[in-house]
Amino acid sequence: MTAALFAVLAVLAVTGAVLVFRCASMARATFALLASLVCVGGEVILLGLPYLGVVTVLMMVMEMVVMAVFMVAYMMNPAGLMPMSMVHNRRGALTISGVVFAGLAAGVLLAPWPGRVGTAPQDTTFQAGAALMGDQMLTMVTLGFALLATMVGATVLAVGRGRYDRFGDDLSRPRPDDPAGGGVGR
């Protein structure tokens, strides 16, 4: 049963991936990607990591919707109505990815994979949680800081207005004049 499920999900994931770059409409490409990633989430659940799988799905859904927003914001032809090919060096890309896939496949098939060592615990989520909070604390901290840095960096990059625009040339204005209203203490 799981093999069948794996096969279905695998095929769905790959077709979704291929569709992403075949669709003209950006929305369709985005949700093809969403489908593909959901399938990957499914695969992860299938591999006995329910928590990580569902979290992946949860995250992917929200991410893809945000991507859809940005897609519409920046793409010239989001609905794919006008025939436009936003592609270059197709042949070169194809050859390189083909070669990479062949290399990886060869590596996968030819490598002498060792057998399984030990068995999975009953509650994998607990195992992950314990590891992250235990001996992998450094990783957790690093990831945490990375996420914090990303949040700050992304905001700074994305926001076009600096502190001088908001608080005046010598930063003397009491209340920043932002285009959108709101803001604590107002």
Binding site: V14, A17, V18, M71, L94, I96, V100
Partner: peptide, 17 residues
Amino acid sequence: ALFSVGLYGALSQQSIV
């Protein structure tokens, strides 16, 4: 497969998104 398709997409597409 997923990696290669992703690579193909990254290499061939012009749009940043």
